[in-house]
Design a protein around this nucleic acid. Sequence first.
DNA 1: GTGGTCTAGACCACC
DNA 2: GTGGTCTAGACCACA
Lengths: 128, 128, 128, 128
Amino acid sequence: MQFNNRSPIYLQIAQYVQELIIGSVWIEEERIPSVRDMAMQLEVNPNTVIRTYSMLQEEGILENQRGIGYFTAKGAKSLVLKKKRNHFIKSELPNLFESMRTLEISLEEIETYFLLFKKEHNYHEVQS
Amino acid sequence: MQFNNRSPIYLQIAQYVQELIIGSVWIEEERIPSVRDMAMQLEVNPNTVIRTYSMLQEEGILENQRGIGYFTAKGAKSLVLKKKRNHFIKSELPNLFESMRTLEISLEEIETYFLLFKKEHNYHEVQS
Amino acid sequence: MQFNNRSPIYLQIAQYVQELIIGSVWIEEERIPSVRDMAMQLEVNPNTVIRTYSMLQEEGILENQRGIGYFTAKGAKSLVLKKKRNHFIKSELPNLFESMRTLEISLEEIETYFLLFKKEHNYHEVQS
Amino acid sequence: MQFNNRSPIYLQIAQYVQELIIGSVWIEEERIPSVRDMAMQLEVNPNTVIRTYSMLQEEGILENQRGIGYFTAKGAKSLVLKKKRNHFIKSELPNLFESMRTLEISLEEIETYFLLFKKEHNYHEVQS
DNA sequence: GTGGTCTAGACCACC
DNA sequence: GTGGTCTAGACCACA
Protein backbone atom coordinates (compact mmCIF):
# COMPACT_ATOMS: atom_id res chain seq x y z
CA MET A 1 0.00 0.00 0.00
CA GLN A 2 1.14 3.50 -0.87
CA PHE A 3 0.66 6.45 1.43
CA ASN A 4 0.53 10.07 0.53
CA ASN A 5 1.66 13.01 2.60
CA ARG A 6 -1.64 14.81 2.65
CA SER A 7 -3.11 13.12 5.69
CA PRO A 8 -1.78 11.15 8.66
CA ILE A 9 -0.86 7.59 7.84
CA TYR A 10 -3.01 6.16 10.62
CA LEU A 11 -6.06 7.77 9.01
CA GLN A 12 -5.18 6.41 5.60
CA ILE A 13 -4.93 2.97 7.15
CA ALA A 14 -8.29 3.47 8.83
CA GLN A 15 -9.72 4.30 5.47
CA TYR A 16 -8.21 1.17 4.02
CA VAL A 17 -9.52 -0.99 6.85
CA GLN A 18 -13.02 0.36 6.38
CA GLU A 19 -12.87 -0.45 2.70
CA LEU A 20 -11.92 -4.02 3.59
CA ILE A 21 -14.94 -4.19 5.83
CA ILE A 22 -17.32 -2.68 3.31
CA GLY A 23 -16.00 -4.97 0.63
CA SER A 24 -16.52 -7.94 2.94
CA VAL A 25 -12.87 -8.85 2.70
CA TRP A 26 -12.85 -8.77 6.46
CA ILE A 27 -15.84 -10.72 7.69
CA GLU A 28 -17.82 -9.51 10.67
CA GLU A 29 -16.91 -10.82 14.09
CA GLU A 30 -13.80 -12.47 12.75
CA ARG A 31 -10.27 -11.91 13.89
CA ILE A 32 -8.22 -9.41 11.90
CA PRO A 33 -4.43 -9.35 11.41
CA SER A 34 -2.44 -8.56 14.53
CA VAL A 35 -0.93 -5.15 14.96
CA ARG A 36 2.51 -6.56 14.21
CA ASP A 37 1.46 -8.39 11.07
CA MET A 38 -0.42 -5.41 9.78
CA ALA A 39 2.52 -3.12 10.49
CA MET A 40 4.88 -5.48 8.70
CA GLN A 41 2.56 -5.83 5.73
CA LEU A 42 2.06 -2.09 5.40
CA GLU A 43 5.72 -1.34 6.15
CA VAL A 44 4.71 0.96 8.91
CA ASN A 45 5.53 1.54 12.55
CA PRO A 46 3.41 -0.71 14.82
CA ASN A 47 2.44 2.32 16.87
CA THR A 48 0.73 3.65 13.80
CA VAL A 49 -1.39 0.54 13.41
CA ILE A 50 -2.22 0.59 17.10
CA ARG A 51 -3.47 4.08 16.67
CA THR A 52 -5.69 3.08 13.77
CA TYR A 53 -7.10 0.03 15.50
CA SER A 54 -7.86 1.80 18.75
CA MET A 55 -9.50 4.68 16.92
CA LEU A 56 -11.74 2.26 15.06
CA GLN A 57 -12.41 0.49 18.32
CA GLU A 58 -13.63 3.72 19.87
CA GLU A 59 -15.96 4.15 16.94
CA GLY A 60 -17.36 0.67 17.56
CA ILE A 61 -16.06 -0.74 14.31
CA LEU A 62 -13.41 -2.97 15.85
CA GLU A 63 -13.32 -4.83 19.11
CA ASN A 64 -10.42 -5.93 21.21
CA GLN A 65 -10.20 -9.18 23.13
CA ARG A 66 -7.30 -8.84 25.49
CA GLY A 67 -4.59 -11.34 24.84
CA ILE A 68 -6.22 -12.60 21.68
CA GLY A 69 -6.39 -9.76 19.23
CA TYR A 70 -8.68 -7.42 17.34
CA PHE A 71 -11.98 -8.45 15.77
CA THR A 72 -14.44 -6.69 13.52
CA ALA A 73 -17.45 -5.76 15.60
CA LYS A 74 -20.91 -7.18 15.08
CA GLY A 75 -22.68 -4.94 12.60
CA ALA A 76 -19.40 -3.35 11.62
CA LYS A 77 -20.19 -3.20 7.95
CA SER A 78 -23.48 -1.39 8.29
CA LEU A 79 -21.96 0.88 10.90
CA VAL A 80 -19.20 1.89 8.56
CA LEU A 81 -21.66 2.48 5.77
CA LYS A 82 -23.86 4.55 8.03
CA LYS A 83 -20.97 6.72 9.16
CA LYS A 84 -19.72 7.21 5.67
CA ARG A 85 -23.20 8.08 4.45
CA ASN A 86 -23.63 10.53 7.26
CA HIS A 87 -20.33 12.20 6.57
CA PHE A 88 -21.19 12.35 2.90
CA ILE A 89 -24.52 14.07 3.45
CA LYS A 90 -23.45 16.38 6.23
CA SER A 91 -20.03 17.38 5.01
CA GLU A 92 -19.03 16.31 1.53
CA LEU A 93 -22.19 17.37 -0.26
CA PRO A 94 -22.43 20.85 1.26
CA ASN A 95 -18.79 21.43 0.39
CA LEU A 96 -19.46 20.28 -3.13
CA PHE A 97 -22.42 22.59 -3.52
CA GLU A 98 -20.48 25.47 -2.06
CA SER A 99 -17.70 24.92 -4.60
CA MET A 100 -20.23 24.65 -7.39
CA ARG A 101 -21.68 27.97 -6.37
CA THR A 102 -18.40 29.89 -6.28
CA LEU A 103 -17.11 28.26 -9.45
CA GLU A 104 -20.46 28.56 -11.19
CA ILE A 105 -20.52 24.92 -12.14
CA SER A 106 -23.85 23.31 -12.90
CA LEU A 107 -25.03 19.82 -12.13
CA GLU A 108 -25.00 19.11 -15.84
CA GLU A 109 -21.27 19.63 -15.94
CA ILE A 110 -20.88 17.33 -12.99
CA GLU A 111 -22.78 14.72 -14.89
CA THR A 112 -20.42 14.97 -17.82
CA TYR A 113 -17.46 14.34 -15.57
CA PHE A 114 -19.36 11.54 -13.88
CA LEU A 115 -19.92 9.70 -17.13
CA LEU A 116 -16.25 10.11 -17.91
CA PHE A 117 -15.30 8.78 -14.50
CA LYS A 118 -17.55 5.77 -14.87
CA LYS A 119 -16.02 4.93 -18.21
CA GLU A 120 -12.49 5.30 -16.97
CA HIS A 121 -13.08 3.24 -13.85
CA ASN A 122 -15.22 0.61 -15.46
CA TYR A 123 -17.94 1.41 -13.00
CA HIS A 124 -21.51 0.47 -13.74
CA GLU A 125 -24.21 1.61 -11.40
CA VAL A 126 -26.04 -1.11 -9.61
CA GLN A 127 -29.70 -1.25 -10.49
CA SER A 128 -31.52 -1.16 -7.18
CA MET B 1 -12.73 35.96 12.13
CA GLN B 2 -12.92 32.57 13.80
CA PHE B 3 -10.37 29.83 13.25
CA ASN B 4 -10.83 26.12 13.60
CA ASN B 5 -8.27 23.52 14.52
CA ARG B 6 -8.54 21.46 11.39
CA SER B 7 -5.89 23.34 9.48
CA PRO B 8 -3.12 25.84 10.23
CA ILE B 9 -4.24 29.38 10.78
CA TYR B 10 -2.05 30.76 8.01
CA LEU B 11 -3.86 28.52 5.51
CA GLN B 12 -7.25 29.57 6.78
CA ILE B 13 -6.21 33.17 6.32
CA ALA B 14 -5.05 32.34 2.80
CA GLN B 15 -8.47 30.87 2.14
CA TYR B 16 -10.11 33.98 3.49
CA VAL B 17 -7.91 36.25 1.39
CA GLN B 18 -8.78 34.34 -1.75
CA GLU B 19 -12.46 34.66 -0.98
CA LEU B 20 -12.02 38.40 -0.65
CA ILE B 21 -10.37 38.43 -4.06
CA ILE B 22 -12.99 36.24 -5.70
CA GLY B 23 -15.74 38.33 -4.16
CA SER B 24 -14.06 41.47 -5.49
CA VAL B 25 -13.85 42.86 -1.99
CA TRP B 26 -10.17 43.31 -2.69
CA ILE B 27 -9.78 44.91 -6.09
CA GLU B 28 -7.03 43.82 -8.43
CA GLU B 29 -3.75 45.70 -8.34
CA GLU B 30 -4.81 47.60 -5.26
CA ARG B 31 -3.00 47.73 -1.99
CA ILE B 32 -4.19 45.36 0.71
CA PRO B 33 -3.97 45.85 4.48
CA SER B 34 -0.44 45.88 5.86
CA VAL B 35 0.85 42.85 7.67
CA ARG B 36 0.51 44.54 11.02
CA ASP B 37 -3.01 45.82 10.35
CA MET B 38 -4.18 42.45 9.14
CA ALA B 39 -2.60 40.78 12.15
CA MET B 40 -4.34 43.18 14.47
CA GLN B 41 -7.66 42.78 12.73
CA LEU B 42 -7.47 38.98 12.79
CA GLU B 43 -6.02 38.95 16.31
CA VAL B 44 -3.07 36.98 15.18
CA ASN B 45 0.70 37.28 15.27
CA PRO B 46 2.18 39.33 12.41
CA ASN B 47 4.46 36.44 11.52
CA THR B 48 1.42 34.37 10.72
CA VAL B 49 0.12 36.98 8.31
CA ILE B 50 3.54 37.30 6.71
CA ARG B 51 3.49 33.60 6.09
CA THR B 52 0.12 33.80 4.36
CA TYR B 53 1.03 36.82 2.28
CA SER B 54 4.37 35.49 1.11
CA MET B 55 2.82 32.14 0.26
CA LEU B 56 0.20 33.84 -1.88
CA GLN B 57 2.92 35.95 -3.42
CA GLU B 58 4.78 32.83 -4.51
CA GLU B 59 1.58 31.60 -6.09
CA GLY B 60 1.33 34.83 -8.04
CA ILE B 61 -1.84 35.99 -6.32
CA LEU B 62 -0.25 38.80 -4.37
CA GLU B 63 2.63 41.11 -5.19
CA ASN B 64 4.98 43.08 -3.09
CA GLN B 65 6.33 46.56 -3.57
CA ARG B 66 9.42 47.11 -1.48
CA GLY B 67 8.77 49.29 1.51
CA ILE B 68 5.23 50.07 0.43
CA GLY B 69 3.21 46.94 1.00
CA TYR B 70 1.36 44.08 -0.60
CA PHE B 71 -0.94 44.37 -3.58
CA THR B 72 -3.27 41.97 -5.30
CA ALA B 73 -1.61 40.86 -8.50
CA LYS B 74 -2.87 41.64 -11.97
CA GLY B 75 -5.20 38.83 -12.94
CA ALA B 76 -5.36 37.63 -9.35
CA LYS B 77 -9.07 36.92 -9.41
CA SER B 78 -9.02 34.72 -12.47
CA LEU B 79 -5.89 33.01 -11.19
CA VAL B 80 -7.59 32.11 -7.95
CA LEU B 81 -10.65 30.88 -9.79
CA LYS B 82 -8.50 28.81 -12.11
CA LYS B 83 -6.68 27.20 -9.20
CA LYS B 84 -9.89 26.45 -7.37
CA ARG B 85 -11.47 25.03 -10.50
CA ASN B 86 -8.46 22.84 -11.09
CA HIS B 87 -8.53 21.52 -7.56
CA PHE B 88 -12.23 20.86 -7.88
CA ILE B 89 -11.90 18.83 -11.06
CA LYS B 90 -8.74 17.00 -10.12
CA SER B 91 -9.43 16.28 -6.49
CA GLU B 92 -12.90 17.04 -5.17
CA LEU B 93 -14.87 15.43 -7.97
CA PRO B 94 -12.99 12.12 -8.02
CA ASN B 95 -13.43 11.88 -4.26
CA LEU B 96 -17.13 12.55 -4.67
CA PHE B 97 -17.53 9.88 -7.31
CA GLU B 98 -15.56 7.42 -5.23
CA SER B 99 -17.90 8.02 -2.31
CA MET B 100 -20.91 7.68 -4.56
CA ARG B 101 -19.66 4.36 -5.76
CA THR B 102 -19.04 2.85 -2.33
CA LEU B 103 -22.25 4.26 -0.92
CA GLU B 104 -24.20 3.37 -4.03
CA ILE B 105 -25.60 6.84 -4.38
CA SER B 106 -26.87 7.94 -7.77
CA LEU B 107 -26.64 11.32 -9.41
CA GLU B 108 -30.41 11.62 -9.08
CA GLU B 109 -30.11 11.55 -5.31
CA ILE B 110 -27.42 14.21 -5.46
CA GLU B 111 -29.79 16.34 -7.45
CA THR B 112 -32.45 16.07 -4.78
CA TYR B 113 -30.02 17.31 -2.17
CA PHE B 114 -28.87 20.01 -4.53
CA LEU B 115 -32.36 21.40 -4.95
CA LEU B 116 -32.74 21.38 -1.20
CA PHE B 117 -29.45 23.16 -0.77
CA LYS B 118 -30.37 25.84 -3.28
CA LYS B 119 -33.66 26.48 -1.53
CA GLU B 120 -32.03 26.70 1.88
CA HIS B 121 -29.26 29.00 0.75
CA ASN B 122 -31.32 31.14 -1.52
CA TYR B 123 -29.03 30.28 -4.39
CA HIS B 124 -30.20 30.70 -7.93
CA GLU B 125 -27.98 29.59 -10.73
CA VAL B 126 -26.83 32.27 -13.09
CA GLN B 127 -28.26 31.87 -16.54
CA SER B 128 -25.35 32.15 -18.91
CA MET C 1 29.83 27.12 9.43
CA GLN C 2 30.17 30.88 9.11
CA PHE C 3 27.41 33.11 7.87
CA ASN C 4 27.73 36.50 6.25
CA ASN C 5 25.28 39.36 6.30
CA ARG C 6 24.73 39.61 2.59
CA SER C 7 21.85 37.17 2.49
CA PRO C 8 19.46 35.53 4.97
CA ILE C 9 20.90 32.65 6.93
CA TYR C 10 18.25 30.23 5.73
CA LEU C 11 19.32 30.84 2.14
CA GLN C 12 22.97 30.36 2.97
CA ILE C 13 22.06 27.06 4.58
CA ALA C 14 20.11 26.12 1.46
CA GLN C 15 23.20 26.89 -0.57
CA TYR C 16 25.28 24.74 1.74
CA VAL C 17 22.83 21.87 1.56
CA GLN C 18 22.85 21.95 -2.21
CA GLU C 19 26.62 21.83 -2.23
CA LEU C 20 26.49 18.76 -0.02
CA ILE C 21 24.15 17.16 -2.53
CA ILE C 22 26.21 18.12 -5.55
CA GLY C 23 29.33 16.90 -3.84
CA SER C 24 27.60 13.61 -3.05
CA VAL C 25 28.25 14.12 0.64
CA TRP C 26 24.53 13.59 1.08
CA ILE C 27 23.51 10.56 -0.90
CA GLU C 28 20.24 10.52 -2.80
CA GLU C 29 17.19 9.12 -1.10
CA GLU C 30 19.00 8.90 2.20
CA ARG C 31 17.98 10.51 5.44
CA ILE C 32 19.60 13.83 6.27
CA PRO C 33 20.23 15.27 9.74
CA SER C 34 17.11 16.11 11.70
CA VAL C 35 16.07 19.72 12.04
CA ARG C 36 17.24 19.86 15.62
CA ASP C 37 20.60 18.23 14.91
CA MET C 38 21.27 20.50 11.98
CA ALA C 39 20.27 23.53 14.03
CA MET C 40 22.64 22.49 16.79
CA GLN C 41 25.46 21.79 14.38
CA LEU C 42 25.05 25.13 12.61
CA GLU C 43 24.42 26.96 15.89
CA VAL C 44 21.17 28.29 14.61
CA ASN C 45 17.53 28.29 15.67
CA PRO C 46 15.60 25.17 14.59
CA ASN C 47 13.01 27.38 12.92
CA THR C 48 15.67 28.62 10.56
CA VAL C 49 16.57 25.10 9.51
CA ILE C 50 12.90 24.23 9.09
CA ARG C 51 12.60 27.14 6.74
CA THR C 52 15.50 25.92 4.64
CA TYR C 53 14.34 22.32 4.57
CA SER C 54 10.76 23.08 3.67
CA MET C 55 11.86 25.48 0.96
CA LEU C 56 14.05 22.82 -0.59
CA GLN C 57 11.18 20.39 -0.25
CA GLU C 58 8.95 22.67 -2.29
CA GLU C 59 11.65 22.79 -4.93
CA GLY C 60 11.65 19.00 -5.05
CA ILE C 61 15.18 18.66 -3.74
CA LEU C 62 14.24 17.26 -0.35
CA GLU C 63 11.40 15.02 0.72
CA ASN C 64 9.68 14.47 4.00
CA GLN C 65 8.47 11.30 5.60
CA ARG C 66 5.96 12.01 8.32
CA GLY C 67 7.38 11.53 11.76
CA ILE C 68 10.64 10.14 10.45
CA GLY C 69 12.53 13.00 8.95
CA TYR C 70 13.82 14.60 5.79
CA PHE C 71 15.42 12.75 2.89
CA THR C 72 17.17 13.87 -0.25
CA ALA C 73 14.78 13.35 -3.12
CA LYS C 74 15.31 10.92 -5.93
CA GLY C 75 17.19 12.74 -8.66
CA ALA C 76 18.05 15.55 -6.26
CA LYS C 77 21.61 15.94 -7.48
CA SER C 78 20.74 16.36 -11.13
CA LEU C 79 17.88 18.65 -10.19
CA VAL C 80 20.20 20.92 -8.27
CA LEU C 81 22.69 20.93 -11.12
CA LYS C 82 19.96 21.71 -13.60
CA LYS C 83 18.74 24.64 -11.54
CA LYS C 84 22.22 25.99 -11.08
CA ARG C 85 22.96 25.62 -14.77
CA ASN C 86 19.77 27.40 -15.66
CA HIS C 87 20.53 30.28 -13.34
CA PHE C 88 24.02 30.50 -14.76
CA ILE C 89 22.86 30.73 -18.36
CA LYS C 90 19.88 32.97 -17.75
CA SER C 91 21.30 35.33 -15.20
CA GLU C 92 25.02 35.12 -14.49
CA LEU C 93 26.22 35.04 -18.08
CA PRO C 94 24.16 38.00 -19.32
CA ASN C 95 25.40 40.02 -16.37
CA LEU C 96 28.95 39.05 -17.20
CA PHE C 97 28.58 40.05 -20.82
CA GLU C 98 26.98 43.32 -19.82
CA SER C 99 29.93 44.10 -17.59
CA MET C 100 32.37 43.13 -20.34
CA ARG C 101 30.65 45.52 -22.68
CA THR C 102 30.72 48.54 -20.38
CA LEU C 103 34.27 47.82 -19.23
CA GLU C 104 35.42 46.95 -22.74
CA ILE C 105 36.92 43.71 -21.64
CA SER C 106 37.47 41.02 -24.23
CA LEU C 107 37.10 37.30 -23.88
CA GLU C 108 40.84 36.98 -24.31
CA GLU C 109 41.38 38.92 -21.12
CA ILE C 110 38.92 36.69 -19.33
CA GLU C 111 40.92 33.71 -20.47
CA THR C 112 44.08 35.13 -18.95
CA TYR C 113 42.35 35.48 -15.60
CA PHE C 114 40.90 32.02 -16.01
CA LEU C 115 44.30 30.41 -16.46
CA LEU C 116 45.49 32.25 -13.37
CA PHE C 117 42.47 31.07 -11.41
CA LYS C 118 42.99 27.48 -12.43
CA LYS C 119 46.61 27.60 -11.36
CA GLU C 120 45.79 29.18 -8.00
CA HIS C 121 42.98 26.77 -7.24
CA ASN C 122 44.64 23.66 -8.55
CA TYR C 123 41.74 23.15 -10.88
CA HIS C 124 42.15 20.97 -13.93
CA GLU C 125 39.32 20.72 -16.38
CA VAL C 126 37.86 17.30 -16.82
CA GLN C 127 38.45 15.92 -20.26
CA SER C 128 35.14 14.70 -21.50
CA MET D 1 12.53 53.10 -15.65
CA GLN D 2 11.46 49.69 -14.42
CA PHE D 3 12.63 48.24 -11.12
CA ASN D 4 12.82 44.64 -10.13
CA ASN D 5 12.36 43.19 -6.70
CA ARG D 6 15.71 41.50 -6.48
CA SER D 7 17.69 44.39 -5.08
CA PRO D 8 16.93 47.64 -3.26
CA ILE D 9 15.62 50.36 -5.49
CA TYR D 10 18.19 52.87 -4.33
CA LEU D 11 20.92 50.53 -5.59
CA GLN D 12 19.23 50.08 -8.91
CA ILE D 13 19.07 53.83 -9.26
CA ALA D 14 22.75 54.07 -8.34
CA GLN D 15 23.46 51.60 -11.10
CA TYR D 16 21.46 53.69 -13.51
CA VAL D 17 23.21 56.88 -12.48
CA GLN D 18 26.59 55.32 -13.00
CA GLU D 19 25.59 54.21 -16.45
CA LEU D 20 24.62 57.78 -17.26
CA ILE D 21 28.05 58.90 -16.12
CA ILE D 22 29.91 56.21 -18.02
CA GLY D 23 27.86 56.94 -21.11
CA SER D 24 28.68 60.63 -20.75
CA VAL D 25 25.00 61.48 -20.59
CA TRP D 26 25.80 63.26 -17.38
CA ILE D 27 28.86 65.42 -17.97
CA GLU D 28 31.51 65.74 -15.29
CA GLU D 29 31.27 68.62 -12.86
CA GLU D 30 27.86 69.55 -14.12
CA ARG D 31 24.70 69.77 -12.10
CA ILE D 32 22.45 66.73 -12.09
CA PRO D 33 18.67 66.64 -11.63
CA SER D 34 17.47 67.59 -8.18
CA VAL D 35 16.31 64.92 -5.78
CA ARG D 36 12.71 65.94 -6.35
CA ASP D 37 12.92 65.91 -10.12
CA MET D 38 14.68 62.60 -10.16
CA ALA D 39 12.12 61.12 -7.78
CA MET D 40 9.29 62.40 -9.92
CA GLN D 41 10.85 61.14 -13.11
CA LEU D 42 11.54 57.70 -11.65
CA GLU D 43 8.19 57.57 -9.83
CA VAL D 44 9.94 56.93 -6.61
CA ASN D 45 9.99 58.25 -3.08
CA PRO D 46 12.37 61.23 -2.77
CA ASN D 47 13.97 59.57 0.24
CA THR D 48 15.08 56.80 -2.06
CA VAL D 49 16.84 59.21 -4.40
CA ILE D 50 18.44 60.96 -1.46
CA ARG D 51 19.83 57.66 -0.37
CA THR D 52 21.27 56.99 -3.81
CA TYR D 53 22.81 60.42 -4.17
CA SER D 54 24.35 60.45 -0.72
CA MET D 55 25.75 56.98 -1.22
CA LEU D 56 27.37 58.02 -4.47
CA GLN D 57 28.60 61.15 -2.75
CA GLU D 58 30.35 59.04 -0.13
CA GLU D 59 32.01 57.12 -2.90
CA GLY D 60 33.27 60.36 -4.39
CA ILE D 61 31.21 60.04 -7.55
CA LEU D 62 28.81 62.86 -6.77
CA GLU D 63 29.29 66.08 -4.90
CA ASN D 64 26.87 68.23 -3.03
CA GLN D 65 26.84 72.01 -2.96
CA ARG D 66 24.54 73.04 -0.16
CA GLY D 67 21.61 75.00 -1.33
CA ILE D 68 22.42 74.45 -4.97
CA GLY D 69 22.24 70.77 -5.66
CA TYR D 70 24.22 67.72 -6.63
CA PHE D 71 27.00 67.64 -9.20
CA THR D 72 29.05 64.91 -10.76
CA ALA D 73 32.51 64.97 -9.23
CA LYS D 74 35.65 65.76 -11.15
CA GLY D 75 37.00 62.50 -12.52
CA ALA D 76 33.69 60.79 -11.82
CA LYS D 77 33.67 58.79 -15.02
CA SER D 78 37.07 57.24 -14.57
CA LEU D 79 36.33 56.63 -10.90
CA VAL D 80 33.17 54.73 -11.77
CA LEU D 81 35.01 52.71 -14.38
CA LYS D 82 37.80 51.91 -11.93
CA LYS D 83 35.35 50.74 -9.27
CA LYS D 84 33.41 48.64 -11.70
CA ARG D 85 36.57 47.11 -13.07
CA ASN D 86 37.77 46.33 -9.58
CA HIS D 87 34.50 44.71 -8.61
CA PHE D 88 34.54 42.75 -11.82
CA ILE D 89 38.01 41.34 -11.25
CA LYS D 90 37.72 40.76 -7.52
CA SER D 91 34.19 39.46 -7.31
CA GLU D 92 32.38 38.72 -10.55
CA LEU D 93 35.15 36.77 -12.23
CA PRO D 94 35.92 34.46 -9.30
CA ASN D 95 32.23 33.71 -8.95
CA LEU D 96 32.05 32.96 -12.64
CA PHE D 97 34.98 30.61 -12.49
CA GLU D 98 33.60 28.91 -9.42
CA SER D 99 30.30 28.30 -11.21
CA MET D 100 32.14 27.03 -14.27
CA ARG D 101 33.98 24.56 -12.11
CA THR D 102 30.95 23.09 -10.35
CA LEU D 103 28.89 23.03 -13.53
CA GLU D 104 31.81 21.75 -15.61
CA ILE D 105 31.40 24.44 -18.20
CA SER D 106 34.37 25.28 -20.38
CA LEU D 107 35.49 28.64 -21.70
CA GLU D 108 34.59 27.44 -25.17
CA GLU D 109 30.95 27.15 -24.16
CA ILE D 110 31.07 30.63 -22.71
CA GLU D 111 32.37 31.87 -26.02
CA THR D 112 29.44 30.34 -27.85
CA TYR D 113 27.01 32.16 -25.59
CA PHE D 114 29.06 35.32 -25.95
CA LEU D 115 28.78 35.29 -29.72
CA LEU D 116 25.05 34.75 -29.37
CA PHE D 117 24.80 37.62 -26.93
CA LYS D 118 26.71 39.96 -29.21
CA LYS D 119 24.45 39.13 -32.11
CA GLU D 120 21.27 39.60 -30.09
CA HIS D 121 22.39 42.90 -28.59
CA ASN D 122 23.98 44.28 -31.69
CA TYR D 123 27.20 44.64 -29.84
CA HIS D 124 30.46 44.94 -31.71
CA GLU D 125 33.66 44.94 -29.77
CA VAL D 126 35.65 48.08 -30.00
CA GLN D 127 39.02 47.62 -31.60
CA SER D 128 41.50 49.06 -29.13
C1' DG E 1 11.95 10.65 18.53
C1' DT E 2 10.24 13.50 14.19
C1' DG E 3 8.53 18.00 11.96
C1' DG E 4 5.00 21.99 12.13
C1' DT E 5 2.74 25.96 13.96
C1' DC E 6 2.32 29.90 16.64
C1' DT E 7 3.66 33.64 19.70
C1' DA E 8 6.26 37.50 21.55
C1' DG E 9 9.66 40.26 20.81
C1' DA E 10 13.92 42.08 18.86
C1' DC E 11 16.39 44.02 15.10
C1' DC E 12 17.17 45.34 10.38
C1' DA E 13 16.85 47.21 5.59
C1' DC E 14 14.17 49.81 2.90
C1' DC E 15 10.82 53.53 1.18
C1' DG F 1 5.72 53.69 7.85
C1' DT F 2 6.64 48.98 5.16
C1' DG F 3 8.08 43.89 5.11
C1' DG F 4 11.79 40.28 6.43
C1' DT F 5 14.61 37.58 9.41
C1' DC F 6 15.84 35.46 13.50
C1' DT F 7 15.45 33.78 18.23
C1' DA F 8 13.55 31.51 22.26
C1' DG F 9 10.25 28.93 23.76
C1' DA F 10 5.78 26.63 23.98
C1' DC F 11 2.65 23.27 22.29
C1' DC F 12 0.92 19.83 19.12
C1' DA F 13 0.28 15.84 15.92
C1' DC F 14 2.47 12.09 14.28
C1' DA F 15 5.49 7.60 13.84
